[in-house]
């Protein structure tokens, strides 16, 4: 089990590193192409922005897993241990609820709330009409070999919405269980530099 976990973590980190590296390299090359050679790739900007969205929407579940999402714990830390744990479970449940509603809000109608749609509905509509992105096109050999349309379909870019939210909900559920079992304290980090500080913890202590 531990080995699978490590493998999954390595996979997630590699994807994140790759997305960030690709964004940087494409943007950098674009500057060089324009300034140095007066040319450029029209799809570069759209491509980079899609990678950016993938980085965030894929990474948000990884953030839950490593407990990196910021929260304010100053007040709940004043409470008795047992209450604290219940509230920590509630925090993780909020994350699960967020993902569940955003994926599809239709189930809320059970409670008489009039609302509809969500990431799944949005994605499947885009899949059905099959419209393309603005600037991103398939290279010609792919168009010819696979007989695809000229433009890359929007649903491909938007795939990360249902996917990322599902993963996010799953990680929140895991955190919830871990907190109930007492394996984890909360799902939040108290401030953005926690890890940075941990690396240099008490370096200057007397």
């Amino acid at each position: 089990m531990q080995r699978v976990d490590n493998w999954v973590t390595r996979f997630e980190e590699s994807v994140l590193a790759l997305l960030l590296a690709a964004m940087t390299i494409v943007s950098f090359t674009q500057v060089v192409a324009r300034y140095g050679f007066n040319t450029g790739w029209t799809g570069a900007l759209e491509f980079t922005r899609i990678l950016f969205a993938w980085l965030i929407l894929f990474g948000m579940s990884y953030g839950v897993k490593i407990g990196a999402h910021l929260g304010v714990d100053a007040f709940i830390r004043l409470l008795p241990k047992k209450v604290f744990r219940v509230i920590a479970v509630f925090g993780a449940a909020c994350g699960l609820l967020y993902a569940a509603i955003l994926l599809s809000a239709d189930w809320l109608s059970i409670f008489g709330i009039d609302t509809r749609g969500g990431a799944i509905d949005y994605w499947s509509r885009m899949y059905k009409i099959g419209i393309g992105l603005d600037d991103l096109r398939y290279p010609e050999f792919i168009q010819e070999t696979f007989g695809t349309k000229e433009r890359v379909q929007r649903w491909i870019a938007y795939l990360i919405l249902p996917l990322g939210l599902t993963l996010f909900g799953f990680r929140c559920l895991q955190a919830m269980i871990a907190i109930i079992q007492g394996k984890q304290e909360t799902m939040i980090a108290a401030h953005e530099a926690e890890e940075l500080v941990a690396e240099h913890k008490d370096e200057l202590k007397d």
Partner: peptide, 21 residues
């Protein structure tokens, strides 16, 4: 926020609920 829900989810969940209701 005060209940220690991650900042992002506090904002996001409130928005989502506001839209639903």
């Amino acid at each position: 926020l005060f209940l220690g829900v991650p900042i992002a989810i506090s904002l996001g969940l409130s928005s989502v609920l506001a839209i639903a209701f």
